[in-house]
Design a binder for these strands. Sequence first.
RNA 1: UGACCCAUGGUGUAAUGGUAACACAGCAGAUUUUGGUUCUGUUAUUCUAGGUUCGAGUCCUGGUGGGUCAACCA
Length: 561
Amino acid sequence: METPEKLNFIEEIVEASIRNGEPRVHTRFPPEPNGYLHIGHAKSICLNFGIAKKYHGKCNLRFDDTNPVKEDTEYVDSIKADIRWLGFEWDGEYYASDYFEQLYGWAVELIKKGKAYVDDQSQEEIRTGRGTVTQPGTNSPFRDRSTEENLDLFARMRAGEFAEGTRVLRAKIDMAHPNMLMRDPLMYRIIHAEHHRTGDKWCIYPMYDYAHGESDSIERITHSICTLEFDVHRPLYDWFIEQLGIFPSHQYEFARLNINYTVMSKRKLLQLVQEKHVTGWDDPRMPTICGLRRRGYTPEAIRLFAEKVGVAKRDNVIDLGLLEWCAREELNRTALRRMAVLDPIKVVIANYPEGQTEWIECVNNPEDAEAGTRKVPFSREVYIERDDFMTDPPKKYYRLSPGGEVRLRYGYIIKCDEVLYDAQGHVAELRCSYDPLSLGGGSSDGRKVKGIIHWVSAPDAVPVQVQLFDRLFAVESPDEAPEGGTFLDNLNPQSLRIVTAQCEPSLAEAVKGDRFQFERLGYFCVDHSEIDPQPEGCAPVFNRIVTLKDSWAKIAGGEGK
RNA sequence: UGACCCAUGGUGUAAUGGUAACACAGCAGAUUUUGGUUCUGUUAUUCUAGGUUCGAGUCCUGGUGGGUCAACCA
C-alpha cells in the first residue's frame, strides 16, 4: 500500500474540480519573453507541468508577448531551452500575439455592448482620474461616447492614425470600485513599434489583463496558476470572460519563491547583467536557470528543490542552503571522486625513493560500486592543501602538524619532520617521512591515524583554473537597500575567487557536462557558457557547484577560510 | 487610513473539528581511509483576545503583524 501522498493546495483544487465533473486538467506556463528564466520560474514550471503530468492532462507553453518594446526572440529561444533542460515538454506552443485578431474582435464586441470606450485623456489625466486606494476615481469626460464614435476611433487607432499615448481603449466598469484594477482598466494602448513576431502589423497592443484570461480561455485552460500578486487581478480576469461569455478558465494564485541572499526580480537581474556586476545572464552566481546550469546544478536537483519548497499562499523566504542540499543530495550519489588541491603546499617525502612513481588504486565513488576504481600516480613530492597543515594546531585538529601524522587518502601515512618557511614567514615546504607498510590502510605497527587528507603527486599534477563562488549578495535580504543606497550595495565583493589548482592527471581530459567531487572540497563541473562559448580544446576551467558540508569549519569557527 | 491575500519550531511544508507531524538547519552519539555519506537520538511550533463546540491550529468576530494593488509592464 502506497503511503498517501500529501497534496499541495493547488492539487487539492484540481482534484476537487475532477470530483465535480471536470474531465480535463489543462495548465499553462505563460512567460513574457523579456528576460531569462530564473529559479522562481522553475517552481512555477514544476508546478504547472507537474500537475498536468500527475493528472494526465496537458500543459501549454504560452508566450505573453503583448508588449513589443520589451520582448525579443532571444528570450523565446532561451526560455524554451531552459524548460526542456529542466525536463519538461509542452503540449502546445502558443503566443498571445497569435490571438491579436480575436482579441480585437472581442474588444469591438465589448464596445458594442457599451462595456468599453476610447479615452482621449493623457496618461497623467488617466492616472489622477483613477483616484487612490482610499479615494474613488472620477469618470473620464470621454466615458459616455457613443458606440459609433468608439467603434470609429478604435478602428482608427488600429489603422495607425494616432500617436502613441493619445488614446486608449478602456473597459467601462466602475471608477469607484474598491479594487483599483476595476476602475475602468486599460485594454489597449497605442505602440508604434516592431513586434518580434507580428512585425508592424499592429500598432495597438492589448494589456496583460485584457489578454491573459482570454488567451487562457482560447486554449481552454482549466487551471490558470499564477503568483500571489495577481490575486487582485482575478475579478477582472473573471469579468472579461463573463462579459464575453467564453470558456471559463479560472485563476489560482500561489506564493512566489524567495531565497535569502538572492534577488529574483527580472528588473534587478537585468541590471546586474547590464551594469556588468556579473558576466552575463548565465554567470554561475546568478539565480537564472542558465546560470544554475552553468554553475553545474542538475535539473534533478532543481526539481527536487521545487518539491522541497512546497506550494502555499504564505510569503516565504527559503534558505539558500536548501538549494545546496538538493545539489549534494544527487551529486553524492552520482559524481565521480577526484583529487585536486586548491591551495597547494609542497610536501617532500624524504625517505621515498627519488624518481619512483607508484600508481595507487582509488575508489571512484564509494556510493556506487559500479563506478569502479582508477589509478592515481604517487611520488616523492606531493601537494597537499594549505589548510591541512598547521604549525600550532588547535585541539581536535586531525590534520598534519609538526611531528604529527596523517594519512594521504588511499595512500601512505606520512609524518611531518620539518617545516620550511619563506622570507615572509609563510610555510613553503614540508619535509616528511612515510611508513612504507601503510599503503591503502593499516600501518607497520598497527597504529591508526585519525586524519586523512587529499593530495596530488607534484610532478604529475595538472594545473587548472578553478572558480570558487560564494553567494552573490552579502546580506540575507538584498532587496532591502541600505540607507541612501541601492540593492547593489548589498553585493558580496568576494562572490568570485579564481585559483589555480593542482589536479590529478585524469582531470585534464574533463569535458563539458562532467561533474566531479573533488575529495573533501566539494562538487565541481567543467565551466561552459552557452551564451559566450570558449573555443573548443582549451584546458578545462572548473566551477565549484557547492562545497561539501563542513563540520570542521564549524568547530574551528573563523579559523578556516 | 480602502479592497484583497496571508499568519503553525530557526526556515519551509502538513495536519480537511478528534494524539500538532515531516523536511532542512541545530545539538548529541554511532559508523566511516572524505571532519563527506549513512544511521540513531534530541532541542524547538499553532500571532492575540473573545465566541461556537464535549472537543478549535482548523469554524466565527475583533485586534495585531506581514504582503499585494493607484505602469499606456507582465
